[in-house]
């Protein structure tokens, strides 16, 4: 049976009481360790929030608070002695960035938080990333997935240039391209049209997408 999220924790996140949520998890981690706290308390709460978010029952701000909490608890866990199985990067490396001409960093940063908590090492290239830089970075990091964020159609239309760069270097079979951002939520058909391999409707769903894409590469 899946662990149930704590009502207190869920309520604290949804009400934006980040410090209360952090204090609750920290107290539990002092007693049970961070790994146990994250798997038994934080992850069930994030699953519930992800479900509410996917069904548009909560706001972007509430998802943002969840992302901040994930980032803070992971930083605390990694600084603690019992990080053990939480060590970031255990699932591999991914490269994230906003597509060329795009400067809307919020979504990308939230995705990075949830991916890190899920065990990915994130190489974050920031805003306005040229196609060549994405591919150079993925090769340098020995990563297999590029996550590209674009908010508007005008900038999302730069995505095919990343696909072209991947194909031009003969990497199509060994890399996956994930796309995210408001425009893909509004028009999911663009994911394929613009050459991406998948998308997630919310930042909190990004880890599941990245795991699925990774599994496609390592059957």
């Amino acid at each position: 049976m899946e662990p149930m999220p704590s009502d207190f924790l869920l309520k604290a996140i949804l009400e934006g009481r980040l410090d209360d949520a952090m204090a609750y998890l920290t107290a539990q981690a002092e007693r049970d360790g961070y790994a146990s706290t994250i798997s038994a308390s934080l992850e069930p709460a994030l699953m519930e929030i992800g479900d509410l978010w996917a069904h548009e029952k909560i706001s972007l701000a509430q998802g943002y608070v969840a992302g901040k909490l994930a980032e803070r608890i992971l930083d605390a866990a990694l600084a603690a002695e019992d990080a053990g199985g939480l060590k970031t990067g255990r699932r591999g490396r991914v490269v994230l960035g906003n597509v060329e001409d795009d400067y809307h960093a919020l979504g990308r940063r939230m995705v990075a938080s949830f991916l890190r908590l899920d065990g990915w090492e994130v190489v974050d290239l920031g805003n306005d990333v040229e196609p060549e830089r994405f591919v150079d970075a993925v090769l340098e990091a020995e990563a297999r997935i590029i996550g590209v964020s674009a908010m508007m159609l005008s900038t999302a239309q730069n995505l095919p240039r990343i696909r072209d760069e991947i194909e031009a270097r003969g990497l199509g079979g060994r890399l996956r391209l994930a796309a995210g951002g408001a425009i893909f939520r509004l028009r999911p058909e663009l994911v394929k049209e613009l050459g991406a391999d998948g998308t997630a409707a919310t930042a909190i769903e990004a880890p599941a997408l990245f795991r699925a894409l990774y599994e496609e590469l390592t059957p």
């Binding site: 949804l14 909560i58 706001s59 972007l60």
Partner: peptide
């Protein structure tokens, strides 16, 4: 309310 929770 899709951006900010309704109370705020």
């Amino acid at each position: 309310p899709s951006i900010l929770d309704e109370r705020r």
